[in-house]
C-alpha cells in the first residue's frame, strides 16, 4: 500500500509527464524541481529527457530540459541530505 508521500510523488511525476504534452513548459519544470527537493527522485532526469524527445527542434540542439533534470536532481541532493533525518 502506498504512503501519502509515495502517492504525492507519483502524482507529481504523472503531472509532469502529462504536462509535458499539454501544459506550458514551466509546469513540468516546476514538478521536477519539487520532486528533486522532496525525494531522491530518479524519475526527474527521465522526465527531462521525455520533454526533450518531444520538443527538441533538431538533433543538434542543446537538450536543456535533460540537462536541467540531471542538474536539479544532483544539486538538490545535499539539501535533501540536510533536511532528511
Amino acid at each position: 500500500m502506498w504512503s501519502p508521500a509515495d502517492l504525492f510523488r507519483a502524482l507529481l511525476a504523472a503531472l509532469a509527464v502529462v504536462g509535458a504534452l499539454v501544459a506550458p513548459w514551466w509546469l513540468p519544470a516546476a514538478c521536477m524541481l519539487l520532486l528533486s527537493l522532496r525525494f531522491d527522485a530518479w524519475e526527474v532526469p527521465l522526465i527531462g529527457l521525455w520533454v526533450d524527445l518531444l520538443w527538441l527542434p533538431t538533433p543538434h540542439s542543446i537538450p536543456w530540459f535533460t540537462l536541467y533534470g540531471i542538474a536539479v536532481v544532483w544539486l538538490a541532493a545535499p539539501l535533501r541530505k540536510q533536511l532528511l533525518l
Binding site: 531522491d40 524519475e43 532526469p45 527531462g48 536532481v73 535533501r80 532528511l84
Partner: peptide, 30 residues
C-alpha cells in the same frame, strides 16, 4: 510525526536513471 523519510544514503536509483538518460541520448544519436 516526522514527515520526512529516512534517507537511504546511496542515490543508486538516481545514478542509474542518469546513466539510463545518457544511454537513451546516445541511442537516439546512433
Amino acid at each position: 510525526m516526522n514527515s520526512y523519510r529516512r534517507h537511504s544514503g546511496s542515490g543508486r536509483k538516481v545514478r542509474a536513471a542518469t546513466a539510463l538518460v545518457v544511454v537513451l541520448v546516445l541511442l537516439d544519436i546512433v
